[in-house]
Design a protein around this nucleic acid. Structure first.
Lengths: 192, 192
DNA sequence: GTCTATAACCTGATAGAC
DNA sequence: GTCTATCAGGTTATAGAC
C-alpha cells in the first residue's frame, strides 16, 4: 500500500466517524503520523481525498451491477440475488467507504459532484431496468417500480450501519435471510 | 412561531442540506436576517439548536411507537401498518428534521448524545418486540428478528430521501405499495 | 433584541529549508 | 518526502453600547 493509499484509508475512517467537514487535514495527518503540510506531497487537496473514496467505490458498484445485468444466463431473481450479495460483501469489507459514499458525497464540488451523480443515476437505472423487466415477465409483483427500487435500495445502501454487529449469523445465513425478507416479505401466508 | 422556533427551523434546513459542521452561525443568522451574535439571545449555542431538532423528533417517533405497541386492539399487522404510516407522514411533513435526525446526531455531545442514543434504543426495542411477538404467534416468518428489524427500519428511516419525488402517487397509494412490498415482498408467487 | 467589535482559536493551503 | 513557519481567512462565543 502506497503512502497515498494509506492517507486515503485513514481519511475515510475519520470521514465516516465525524463527517467530512468535521475532519481537518491536521486530523488526517496525525492519523498517518506526519505533519499536515506533508499530505500535500501525496494529494493536491482535501477534496481530492473525498473524490478518491467516493468515485472509486461508486465505480465498483456500477461496474458490478452492469456486469450482472448484462449476463444473459441470469434470471431476474438471480440478478437481484447477486446485487444483494455485492452490497453485503462491500458493507462488510469496506464499511467506512460505504458510509462516506452514502453520506459525504454532498461535500463534493464541481466536476466530481457531477461524476458522482451520473454514477448514482446509472446504478439506479440498471436496477430500475431489472425491476421493470421482472414486472413485465410477471416474476415481480405489479407495484410501482420506483417504490420497489427505493425500498430495496434503502436497505442495501444502509447495510453498513448494522451488518458488522450481526455476528450471531454467518454471512451465508445473513444473505439467505435478507434475500427472503426483501424478496418474499415477512408476513407468513396462510396455506389453507 | 417564536423567533427561537424560526431559528431552529432555518438551521434544520441548512443542516439537512450541508451538514451540521459545514453550517456556521453566520449562515443561520443570514437565513433569519439578523447578525450571528443576536442568535445567542435566543439560544445558548449551536449545539443547542441541533439538540432541539434531534431530540424533539426522536421523542415524536418514540411516543408514537409506544402508543401503537401498547394498544391492545391492534394486531401485529396493524401495528406495522401504523408505524409505516407514521414514517411516511413525518418524512413528507418534516423531511429536513428527519434528515438531521438520521445523519447529524453524531455531532451531539455529552448528555444530549446519551439521550438520543437511549431514545433510538427504545424505538428499536419497541419494534423488536412487535416483530418477536409476530414470529411467536406465527404471523411473521421465522427469520432472524434483527435482520427483519433493520431491513424494515432502513427503508423507513430513509424515506425522506425519495418520497417527496414520488408525486405520481397519492400518499394512500404510496402507503399501500410500500406496505405490500415491505410485508409481502416483491416476488410474485406461482399460484399453481 | 439587535448591533459592532473582538477574543481565542481553527481552517486549507503554500513557501522554502533540509 | 517531511519538516517549520506562515498566510489569509473562517470558527464559536462574549462584552458592552444602544
Amino acid at each position: 500500500m502506497t503512502r497515498r493509499d494509506e492517507i486515503i484509508k485513514q481519511a475515510g475512517l475519520l470521514f465516516s466517524l465525524k463527517g467530512y467537514s468535521a475532519v481537518s487535514m491536521r486530523d488526517i495527518a496525525k492519523a498517518v503520523d506526519i505533519k499536515a503540510a506533508s499530505l500535500y506531497n501525496h494529494l493536491p487537496s482535501k477534496q481530492a481525498i473525498l473524490e478518491a473514496i467516493v468515485l472509486n467505490l461508486a465505480n465498483t458498484f456500477v461496474n458490478h451491477i452492469h456486469d450482472v445485468n448484462q449476463n444473459p444466463s441470469f434470471s431476474t431473481r438471480q440478478k437481484l440475488s447477486e446485487i444483494i450479495q455485492q452490497h453485503i460483501d462491500l458493507s462488510l469489507q469496506q464499511p467506512e467507504s460505504v458510509a462516506v459514499l452514502n453520506t459525504e458525497w454532498i461535500h463534493l464540488n464541481g466536476e466530481a459532484l457531477d461524476k458522482f451523480k451520473a454514477k448514482r443515476f446509472t446504478y439506479e437505472q440498471e436496477l430500475r431496468e431489472i425491476i421493470k423487466n421482472g414486472i413485465q415477465e410477471q416474476s415481480i409483483t405489479k407495484r410501482d417500480p420506483e417504490v420497489i427500487l427505493f425500498s430495496i435500495l434503502s436497505t442495501l445502501r444502509t447495510l453498513n450501519l448494522w451488518v458488522a454487529k450481526r455476528k450471531h449469523l454467518t454471512v451465508e445465513d445473513l444473505k439467505a435471510d435478507l434475500e427472503t425478507i426483501l424478496l418474499y416479505g415477512i408476513i407468513r401466508q396462510n396455506k389453507s
